[in-house]
Amino acid sequence: MPAPARFLSIAGTDPSGGAGQSADIKTASALGAFATSVVTAVVAQNTCGVRDIMPLPHSILRAQLDAVFEDIAPDSVKIGMVADSATARLVREYLERYRPKHVVLDPVMVAKSGDRLVDDDGFHAVRDILIPVADIITPNLPEAAMLLDRPVPADRAAMQALASGLSTLGATMVVLKGGYLSGAHSDDLVIMPNQQQWLEAPRIDTRSLHGSGCTLSSAIAALLPVSDSPLTAMREAKAYMSGALKRADSLKVGHGQGPAHHFFRWW
């Protein structure tokens, strides 16, 4: 058998196991990639909300990045929570030095609980430093609205109206997630240089949405090295996400918004 793709998560932690780096590692492993990780911040959170955030010193962040890039040479990198511009510049330094083939950025700014995860410095770090070096970004509707200083879209037409603005931020492709819309479907809009494509799926009736953004972006990153095109990776990631949400309530984890079932195909 061929060696698995090498996947790197650069993100914050989640001690409750459903979001952040926990979701990244579970997702990549479930999809057949070898998962490695670099921690940007220790986050005290669970299914009910975020309690505290402690960004790690840049010296230990640099040491982690050295350890992984010098030895493992990741095929794909998924970037999650980055708390400040200095951290973002450090991450960008390594991306530009080692040039991994695939970089997926989940512009994490607001948790599912509604808690804001970054301050203004962190917001500008994502928009101005990291998005320009990403191949794919995966904002949800509130994050896309923040990035463009526009109202949160309320329908598919409003999502499409954001496409031109999102395309100017610097990433090659955008997956604009439509989960915040109401209705029977949860459709995502893929924005590519010369076209747009809808990824359609029925809405799953569940409150277990903790870490769903982390999971989708990690699924895309894990699948990119073994897919014939980015759009194929996105479609397969969307199907995996739907399955993980469909079986999520069977986990019975937490008292708030529970996690997706990352191993629904095996357990």
Rank of each mutant, 00 (worst) to 15 (best):
F123H: 03
D24P: 01
G49F: 14
A11H: 03
V91Q: 08
T138S: 06
V226I: 15
I10C: 05
A19P: 06
V174W: 04
D120P: 05
S164V: 13
S22G: 00
V39N: 05
P193H: 01
P225A: 00
R92D: 11
H255G: 15
P57K: 00
K112M: 07
M173R: 14
A201M: 02
D155G: 09
A239P: 01
N194W: 12
R51M: 05
V174H: 03
R235G: 07
A163Q: 10
G254W: 13
I136E: 03
R116Q: 04
S59C: 06
G213D: 04
R6T: 11
P259A: 02
D71R: 15
L31C: 09
A63N: 01
T40P: 10
F263P: 07
H58M: 15
E200R: 08
V110T: 05
H262S: 05
R156K: 11
V226Y: 14
H102E: 05
R92P: 15
D75N: 03
A88I: 09
M54G: 12
G17S: 05
R235Y: 13
D121I: 00
V152H: 09
E96V: 13
S167R: 11
V43Q: 14
A154M: 14
K78A: 03
T13K: 10
D205F: 00
P151M: 02
Q195R: 15
D115C: 09
H255D: 15
F263R: 09
I10T: 03
V43G: 06
W267F: 07
I53H: 13
F34E: 12
S167C: 00
A239R: 12
S250P: 03
Q197L: 12
A157W: 09
A219P: 00
A3D: 09
P142I: 02
V226A: 03
L224C: 10
K26P: 04
D205W: 04
L181D: 02
G122H: 13
E96L: 14
G178A: 09
A145P: 08
F69K: 07
